[in-house]
Design a protein around this nucleic acid. Structure first.
Lengths: 244, 244
DNA sequence: TCATCGAAAATTGTTGACACTTTGGCGCGA
DNA sequence: TCGCGCCAAAGTGTCAACAATTTTCGATGA
């Protein structure tokens, strides 16, 4: 009787694949700042830590490469991607376009319940502003943006938008927020909800696009302020005339 | 004497990974219609055919899953994704938004060389219309769209746009083009290039967005025409009021 | 004839191993 | 002291094999 209960040979009824959890875990580590831009993903070590083999880890990395969170180098593996100023600005433009689209779609179909929810978020953001509670404002701000996208009822958009935001977090210097802009930002929110509740697609689209572009402008200003810190050759914002 | 020259143990100086070529090959097969929507990817067979093992094949599939060309089912592997009417229409909206954004960006920085190229494409499309050469028109149309996106000089956008178009090709019934719309479509192109050459970002954005939305409308009309063919319960276009 | 059950075959998810490449350090010589 | 080249260690890219699961197919019974 060889009941070797000391070695339950890994209880795997194969009820789920390892890959999605791993992928989420790496995403989490990047989001939490445990993995900084440029860091190499050590497949062997990660696999060991998670108690699995390298196969699923590689698959997860390959997926993350596709959504832009990692990049791969031949014979050197996967690295946490890092985006420069140009790419960050590019992302703002894309987000602006998609956010505007979300608004255009949402205005036509948004429910009163969704509008009520948004108004409540705006009220709580006002409170956060009063209390100078930057963290809460940040969270609520993200939430209302997410709700606008959800209200568009466009599955692909709902899937894409968070990915773009995650990619923006790969920008070298994190945490660029200008506290002074909170009030202006929330005023924009109010106008946006107004347009949405009026079912005014065009205005909603325009306001939402501008809302993100305003964020881009603030980002640029912050960049300018900290330009002195940047000793590097300053990645030119000018477009290099392609093949001329 | 076991000089088994019949099996040169795979000459692999590891100068490139297998994964990207495999990924492109699967993309090609889908694009060429060799793999129809719903088909299962047989990892073993594909690996055997390509003369490699299943590892890289799985990695390529995982990447393709992320960009929406494949979907995975536990213990059943990867399938060529298939999108329904709702998803196709959603994609049109996203493409419209991004295309508009591309125009807004391009208008500010487009070069005369790029404009000249576009005008030439429009001229050739006019010729194709005269000759009723649908295939050529289709190709040139794709090309000018691509050039607008390239002119935006937004790397992420240039990367995303073709993926969205590829995903749209996963729609059940392929090849939905209304020949009659060629002339209208090319008139729109002319107006777009006009706006671009004027550096009019707002107009360019609006025209480009409408250009895609016009495509969406044509798509919807075509859908309506062939509705009779669809015996199925007709995937409701109405939005299901989410959580009420 | 047809549906049902069960065993064999096919296929997936994961693993451990192997060859090749890169990395880091050590000693040697200038 | 500093550079240069060699060598071991670490790590990646791929493969072949194994267990679990799904699928196929034939036998069985109604």
């Amino acid at each position: 009787m060889s009941r070797r209960d000391d070695i339950p040979p890994t209880r795997i009824p194969r009820t789920a694949s390892f890959v999605p959890p791993i992928q989420r875990e790496i995403e989490r580590m990047i989001g939490a700042g445990e993995l900084v831009g440029g860091t190499r993903i050590n497949e062997s070590a990660l696999a060991l830590r998670l108690g699995i083999s390298r196969g699923p880890v590689r698959e997860a990395c390959r997926a993350l490469e596709q959504i832009g969170l990692l990049r791969s180098e031949l014979n050197r593996g996967f690295f946490v991607r890092e985006i420069g100023t140009k790419e960050a600005l590019d992302l703002y433009d894309i987000r602006a376009g998609l956010f505007g689209t979300a608004g255009r779609l949402a205005a036509a179909i948004i429910t009163t319940a969704q509008l009520r929810e948004m108004k409540d978020l705006i009220r709580r953001m006002d409170e956060a502003i009063e209390a100078s509670d930057l963290a809460t404002f940040y969270t609520l701000n993200n939430e209302i943006h997410r709700q606008v996208v959800v209200a568009s009822d466009n599955a692909k958009l709902i899937e894409m938008y968070p990915l773009l935001e995650a990619e923006l977090h790969l920008f070298r210097r994190r945490g660029l927020v200008l506290p002074g802009s909170m009030r202006v930002s929330n005023d924009e929110h109010k106008a946006i909800v107004e347009a949405l509740s009026n079912g005014d697609s065009t205005t909603a689209a325009r306001l939402l696009e501008r809302h993100i572009l305003a964020g881009k402008a603030r980002f640029l200003r912050t960049l300018g302020c900290s330009a002195a810190i940047d000793a590097r050759p300053a990645p030119s914002l000018k477009r290099v005339p392609a093949d001329s």
